[in-house]
Amino acid sequence: MNQAAVPLLLAEGLGKRFGGVQALQDVSFELRAGEIFGLIGPNGAGKTTLFNLLTGIYRPDQGHIRFAGRELGGRKPHEIALAGIARTFQNIRLFAHLTALENVMIGRHGRTRAGVLGAVLRPAWVRAEERAIRDHALQLLDDVGIASRADSLAQHLSYGDQRRLEIARALATQPKLLALDEPAAGMNGAETTELKTLLQRIRGTGVTLLLVEHDMKLVMGLCDRVMVLDYGRKLAEGLPAAVRADPRVVEAYLGAEA
């Protein structure tokens, strides 16, 4: 594991304030290439804020984000996607009136280059690119197990299939890091188990995973390392077992849920 020496993503001293609320304060951590990293914490701990800083929805007020050797803090979402961070959304945001296949094909946008002239004149290289986009997308739908639904509108898919489609669409951008915002939300036990298998398979292809999740069982069973946020600060970081045993973490969760 030589890669572990150089982190894929390095966040230093991240801070974000909304009006009078310090949503995030001095949070630092690193993601190592090839790991599955879990981000947990009680409601309102700042998980989503951190997620939105990493994916460019918000700009950090303080701190830096270095990803694969480049500074990403304050970059626009599409630049971050092109740099190699793909994401899914907590409240599923598919292109509802397009087919599953089209959704994934759109994910190829940043890795392909046909422009208006190419589209209208359709020279051989554009036709080849279109074919490659389609094949790649079909392959990804197959990988996540919804190839049979390729031509259904995204809005007609079942909830679990929509989650899978979001993952396929994110993978289409060829990310180095796949950031998942509560992928198991609303899933039953069987679906969660399938999701776990899928995520492990994705990690097997060399993609690093960042997981924001409420389902503790999934996090503990899947993640290599876990970071706990509470009130916008980092409370603990480490191996799942160690974090779970940490009295501060227990207190934060019990305090929040009591």
Binding site: F89, L94, F95, I106, A114, T173
Partner: peptide, 21 residues
């Protein structure tokens, strides 16, 4: 085409479209 799909993507959801690069 790639461009047409991108147009439809921003019509459907701009935030998700940006996340696709």
């Amino acid at each position: 085409s790639r461009i047409g799909r991108a147009w439809e993507a921003i019509r459907e959801d701009e935030v998700a479209a940006a996340a696709m690069g």
